[in-house]
C-alpha cells in the first residue's frame, strides 16, 4: 500500500480510518477492501463498519473493548495486504426512463452542456458506474463518475419532493433516490426498480463496491416494469 492511513477518533464509540481526501476510485477501493477485511476479521466489540468515499468508520461497544485495542487490531489489518476487491461484487442493470415528467432536469442539463437530450442520455448510459458509497437516505447510492460533458451542478434550491426512483446528477456524481425525499440533484430520469425492499433477504439492492449500468427504456416499458414491481 502506498498510503499510510490515519486513524482518528470520531467519538468514544468510533474510529475513522482515513485513506485520502479525494473522490477517486483507487482510494475508494482501498476503503472498501479494508471495510470488508474488518468485517471478516470479527474483532471483539466491533459493531458496525461504515465505508465512505475515502474513509471507513469502525463503531465499537466501549463496554466490550476500548479504542486502544481496536486501533491495534486495525493497524494489524492495515499492515497485512488485505485482498483486492471481492470479485463477487454485482453489476446491476438499472432500466431508466429518461426525460419528460420523470426527468424534469434533462433539458436543462442538455442546454448547459450544449448537447441534445438524446446525447445526454447516451452519455449517461455509456458508463458502467462504480458505487462509491451509500448515504443521504436508506439505500441511496453515490455513483461515479459521469462523462465530463454532462457534469452538472446541484439545483440552486433543492426540491421539496423528489419521486422514488429518480436518477440525478450532482457534479460528476450520479445517484438514485430510493424513496421520495427532498433533494437537490438534477433529475434526468426515473427507474421502476425498487432499490430496497424489506421483503428481500438482503433489503438493499446495491452495495458499495458494486457496479451500475443504466439501460434507457421508454415510457411503456417503464409502466410495464412498474406494474411488475408492485
Amino acid at each position: 500500500m502506498n498510503v499510510i492511513p490515519r486513524i482518528v477518533p470520531l467519538s468514544e464509540q468510533g474510529l475513522t480510518v482515513e485513506f485520502g481526501e479525494t473522490i477517486d476510485l483507487q482510494t475508494n477501493k482501498l476503503v472498501l477492501d479494508f471495510a470488508a477485511t474488518v468485517e471478516r476479521a470479527t474483532i471483539p466489540g466491533v459493531m458496525e463498519v461504515v465505508p465512505t468515499y475515502r474513509s471507513a468508520t469502525i463503531y465499537f461497544n466501549p463496554l466490550l473493548t476500548d479504542a486502544a485495542a481496536v486501533t491495534a487490531q486495525l493497524r494489524l489489518l492495515l499492515a497485512t495486504a488485505f485482498p483486492a476487491t471481492d470479485p463477487a461484487h454485482t453489476t446491476h442493470h438499472i432500466p431508466v426512463c429518461y426525460g419528460g415528467e420523470l426527468g424534469p432536469d434533462l433539458i436543462d442539463v442538455a442546454e448547459q452542456s450544449g448537447l441534445t437530450p438524446a446525447q445526454v442520455i447516451t452519455l449517461h448510459a455509456s458508463v458502467t458506474y462504480h458505487v462509491y458509497m451509500l448515504g443521504f437516505s436508506p439505500g441511496f447510492p453515490y455513483l461515479g463518475m459521469v462523462p465530463d460533458r454532462i457534469v452538472a451542478p446541484r439545483l440552486p434550491t433543492p426540491r421539496k419532493q423528489v419521486a422514488a426512483g429518480s436518477v440525478g446528477i450532482a457534479g460528476s456524481q450520479t445517484g438514485i433516490y430510493p424513496q421520495a425525499s427532498p433533494g437537490g440533484w438534477r433529475i434526468i430520469g426515473r427507474t421502476p426498480v425498487h432499490l430496497f425492499s424489506l421483503t428481500r433477504p438482503q433489503p438493499f439492492l446495491v452495495a458499495a463496491g458494486d457496479q451500475v449500468q443504466f439501460i434507457p427504456i421508454d415510457m411503456e416499458e417503464f409502466r410495464d416494469l412498474s406494474s411488475d414491481h408492485t
Binding site: 467519538s11 482515513e18 461504515v50 465512505t52 468515499y53 475515502r54 474513509s55 468508520t57 448515504g135 443521504f136
Partner: peptide
C-alpha cells in the same frame, strides 16, 4: 469535505461558521 461518517453528537460547521450539533436522526455521512 469529501463526505465522511458522522454520528449522534457530531459538531459540524458549514461555511457560515456556525455549528450544527447532530442528534439522533442524523444522516450516516
Amino acid at each position: 469535505i469529501v463526505s465522511d461518517a458522522v454520528t449522534f453528537g457530531t459538531i459540524q460547521v458549514p461555511a457560515d461558521r456556525q455549528p450544527i450539533l447532530l442528534m439522533a436522526d442524523c444522516q450516516t455521512t
